[in-house]
Design a protein around this nucleic acid. Structure first.
Lengths: 232, 232
DNA sequence: GTCCAATGGCTCGCTGACATACCTTTGGAG
DNA sequence: CTCCAAAGGTATGTCAGCGAGCCATTGGAC
């Protein structure tokens, strides 16, 4: 009964410390707090994450050891993201089922997000945000491309106005990024990606849900094919 | 910065006890373990859920108090789901933002699931499962309709072969069901739903992703309209 | 030059949750 | 009839994580 496997899965993915580390790494690797930028103050961040300051500090400490951040004391101090962001250590062998699962989830939530975003009346702020992320992505170097790319996709999710859907896209992206880190990032793929990004965003701001969805599906299929090719 | 709100959200939705209760209620209210059926043994379930047996037992105890289950000792004993399943206590006033969020998430993941399921080569078991759930849903009484309906939608998610997507659909459904429990369930809506279910499943087994998606979107739009009408 | 507000750094006692072990009940196998 | 395996019921010692408070450092405001 695989359905029961899905519902009776573990209620917690790890202990509080591990989950906190995971969340901070997510924010950094998805480019939500970029190199040189500051994380919220410990007291505030601990409250927002719903963990004690002690636990949060342990997590930050382990990010320091991994080279992700540096902390400075005093007023106008804080915890700052290092530049460059360290490359993620590729973990164990890729399980083919995990690959299929991650790609299926991403396809479902990201095409859904593109369609919903295109079906809404976007505010000026949201429209500008999309275009900003689009150009940032186009101008990004190889080193920072994955972060800028994620940032654009998150902006699309954000444009749906649904926090839950944004969260779902962020999770799906973290999982696929972990896989993408194991294969080379080539300039031709990158150029192709940027063209597709432009098409997607155009359809979203034009308010054409069907076209936005199709463009997003095509875009995702590209990297899915790469992944399956390299990892199978 | 709403994106940071999404990423720096609490790492745990509640304490271990609360999350365990939530998970068990989910399994029962979504009809994954039906009335009269038995939950896995405490020792096994505690392991699967990743909580201690003490915590699991506290959760089961509170389900007993709420009338969801009864426990029997001895070999061939266990914890059994009561018949009928108690009606859920409608909680506080509905926040319009929560409503929009839940509906957007559901639309995205469920249409994605329908499309992915239709795009796969289904095994005989999966196809039979879909058809079984479809007829169960058609023959369901008003009292049990919501559970059978959820069960069918979960079978569609399951047919994608992606555990993560199945989980996402289950979560989205729990949230919308909590809202649907606040509005009346009328026989005409029910009949209409069943017709749509048949169309969706037909397109999935026929392997037509585009049509399956469209049918699912239409189906979900129906209840979305009802919800917005009654709760806004 | 002095002050001070905001930040990271640290300590200690309390509680929830866990692992483990053992007890009690039940009903089929033999 | 007897036994015993599998299930729920209970007790206990340990530890991660929390809350709360205090200390140390820093750089701008005045």
């Amino acid at each position: 009964m695989p359905l029961q496997d899905a519902l009776f899965r573990p209620v917690r993915a790890g202990n509080a410390f591990e989950e906190t580390v995971e969340r901070l790494v997510q924010a950094i690797r998805l480019g939500v707090v970029g190199p040189g930028e500051r994380l919220p103050a410990e007291r505030e961040l601990a409250t927002r994450l719903g963990v004690s300051r002690v636990t949060l500090r342990e997590a930050i400490r382990s990010l320091q050891d991994a080279g992700y951040v540096e902390s400075r004391r005093g007023r106008y101090g804080g915890t700052f993201v290092n530049s460059p962001v360290p490359v993620a250590a590729p973990d164990r062998q890729v399980d083919p089922e995990e690959l299929a699962d991650a790609l299926t989830l991403r396809l479902a939530v990201e095409t859904g997000a593109a369609e919903c975003a295109a079906g809404r009346a976007l505010g000026a702020v949201e429209r500008r945000n999309l275009l900003t992320r689009l150009t940032e992505c186009r101008d990004a170097s190889l080193e920072e491309y994955r972060r800028k790319d994620s940032r654009l996709h998150l902006a699309i999710a954000e444009a749906t106005g649904s926090p839950s859907l944004t969260t779902a896209v962020a999770d799906a992206r973290m999982r696929t990024n972990a896989l993408l880190d194991r294969i080379p990032l080539l300039p031709p793929n990158l150029a192709h990606s940027n063209e597709q990004h432009e098409v997607i965003v155009t359809h979203i701001v034009a308010g054409d849900p069907e076209a936005a969805r199709r463009a997003m599906a095509e875009h995702l299929d590209g990297t899915a094919l790469l992944l399956r090719g390299f990892l199978s």
